[in-house]
Write a protein that binds this DNA or RNA. Structure first.
Lengths: 199, 199
DNA sequence: AACAAAAACATGAAATTTCATGGAAGAATG
DNA sequence: CATTCTTCCATGAAATTTCATGTTTTTGTT
């Protein structure tokens, strides 16, 4: 229910044909009209993130995990227990999805769910022995892959890249999703607020 | 149906409670056990990509577009026409999804679909006059946002970040590699040097 | 302490995305 | 030029994700 209707009126094309211009193949000969996205940071980040990840996802699937499952597992490596909420943030997946994936992983014997004694609302998820074994193998491969990816840059540049990414992370706190601080004004598309609340 | 069964046996928790360790809040006091993902490039890229994008997605939704719709629109800015396949790659969305989104956008009057005369199999998508107006506004805001995001780095570092991202893009072609096997064509040249130098 | 408000998570319903498939057009072979 | 193979896209069915909501627990207020 985003833009316009959802009906699929047209059968086949309306009939109009394109003039002649072949779309941007890769290198435009004369009309060097660059696509906007090719210089857009968010696009570059998304593309790079996706391509790097996808390369490794082959190994993930070979291990019998879905991408979301791998993200959850990976987020648990080196941790003593993560809440559903923390996993949601770490895996870039909405909370209900994480709840379900974790449940699936638990029945699969890869993770364990406990209750936090300090706050009995939260569910603490951690790797089972079997989950840790599986994770260790994948993590080793992941690090090898990462090394290969960063290799072309040399240690210094690679380190700087990682440093800049970390800086960006620190500069842009998560949770831009739900924000209802001033609970009075219901919904205002108004002026963009850059001040992300930290939690 | 990825890992294990899908049944949901358990009602509520099994009953076990966590020991006492509060999960990684943000800064571990004594047990500096860092989560694996916090040093994992793919994770950093995904997080940064997501957070930067999400910040802007508020403006996108304010404009009445879904994220996928915005990605399609943005990919058409500065282009004379993109195929469904190209849009699929640019938007990181599977082809059937793009087909449907484009159809929706067309009925919404934001894009136009034509047939490529050169290759009548492909559908060339381009912005309508109205779509271009909408896109221009969003692109202007997107660039302002990008400027703000890169500001803390200074021109030189910002440029280097973008350069490195572009290099990674060049080093890691899309689509992954199908199976190789008997192909006489070299799988992927790969061995490319990353020129962190100017563009 | 009592009560209201908020937070964390599980769950069913709804929406979106992807998978599998098929038709049509171009390329490749003979 | 007939035949086969591949590519590109659309479409219905299936799977995944998200939304909306309810319950339980914690926090804040009076």
């Amino acid at each position: 229910m985003k833009a316009s209707t959802q009906r699929s009126d047209r059968q086949r094309h309306g009939g109009r044909d394109a003039a002649d211009t072949p779309p941007s193949g890769d290198a435009a000969p004369a009309d060097a009209a660059a696509r906007f996205v090719d210089g857009y940071l968010a696009y570059l980040l998304a593309q790079v993130s996706n391509r790097i990840s996808c390369e490794f996802h082959r190994e993930v699937e070979a291990a019998g995990l879905s991408v979301t499952e791998w993200r959850v597992i990976a987020s648990l490596v080196g941790s003593r227990g993560e809440t559903i909420g923390a996993l949601s943030e770490a895996t870039l997946t909405k909370q209900p999805t994480v709840s379900k994936v974790v449940l699936r992983l638990e029945t699969g014997g890869l993770v364990v769910r406990l209750r936090n004694r300090k706050d009995r609302r939260q569910t603490l998820v951690s790797l089972s022995a079997r989950g840790r074994r599986l994770a260790d193998g994948l993590v080793a491969r992941a690090l090898r892959h990462q090394t290969a990816v960063l290799a072309p840059f040399g240690a210094d540049n690679a380190a700087q890249l990682v440093r800049m990414l970390r800086t960006l992370l620190a500069l842009h706190p998560p949770g831009g999703i739900d924000d209802a601080s001033e609970a009075d004004v219901p919904r205002r598309p108004a002026r963009a607020r850059a001040t992300t609340k930290s939690r």
